[in-house]
Amino acid sequence: MSKILELRDLSYVYGMKTPFEKKAVDKVTLSIEKGEFIGIIGHTGSGKSTLVQMLNGLIRPTGGQVLLDGTDIWEKPKEIRKIRFRVGMVFQYPEYQLFDETVYKDISFGPKNMGKSGDELDFAVRKAAEFAGLKDELLNKSPFDLSGGEKRRAAIAGVIAMDPEVLILDEPTAGLDPMGRELLLSQIMQYHRERKNTVLLVSHSMEDIARVADRIIVMNNSKLEMFETTKKVFSHGRELEKIGLRVPQITRIMSILKDKGYDVDDGSLNVGDALMQITALLKKEGKIW
């Protein structure tokens, strides 16, 4: 394993040297391994959005460094666009950025800006559309004629098409219904499995994070509060609640049981996991077979 992203004392202050000076990100130091799936949580205003926008050079840090594969991304400020191709960023409600006549052309905007053309471009677009679960016949439609969920996936394909080494998604499932959320989430997981690249997912949905993340970054008050494995983070239910975050319902149920003296795991992440533990207990006591 090798480090793909390394943050060293990364800081950002809004309105430097004005009366409205406000720390948005305060001395965050951490490193992320190649191929990891990282969840980022924190309430609104905790600094997580500013943090991720510094990772691909959309915001220039006011202090500290971002190292991508060992090199500072601001080493050559004129070439910062190249960094944006390597660290792809999908914003909240990305469907609002669709603009071209057809879905195909819209997806090709990024790779074209990279200088791709011909077969290489065509391959990138089709591959991205496939990853995003867009059927071929949709590619020639106007992006404005798609359904809400399809628009969202087309917009995500536009970023995947640049084939970034790191993919950052800011609340990709916001506003979708359970079916759309489920579909998109499994598409992202499949993309991660097949491409084996690094994915960072910012989300308010703890259930989503619990399902996908290997490790979780917890931001609070512009500082890094925790950076641990998903299981470990969610076993700190009480600390999370103190900073205005909650854990999935199932995790909460199991940790209450543990507090009451039952032999269960307080970092249980999903219903299947909890079910296994409860049935194991019941079997031990001979209540079921």
């Binding site: 259930e207 999935p248 319902q249 199932i250 149920i253 219903v271 909890a274 079910l275 409860i278 049935t279 019941l282 209540k287 079921i288 077979w289």
Partner: peptide, 16 residues
């Protein structure tokens, strides 16, 4: 469905 309900439903399926 709420995770609480789902867990109980699955336990019921196990014969509880």
């Amino acid at each position: 469905v709420p995770q609480a309900t789902e867990l109980a439903y699955k336990l019921r399926g196990c014969g509880v």
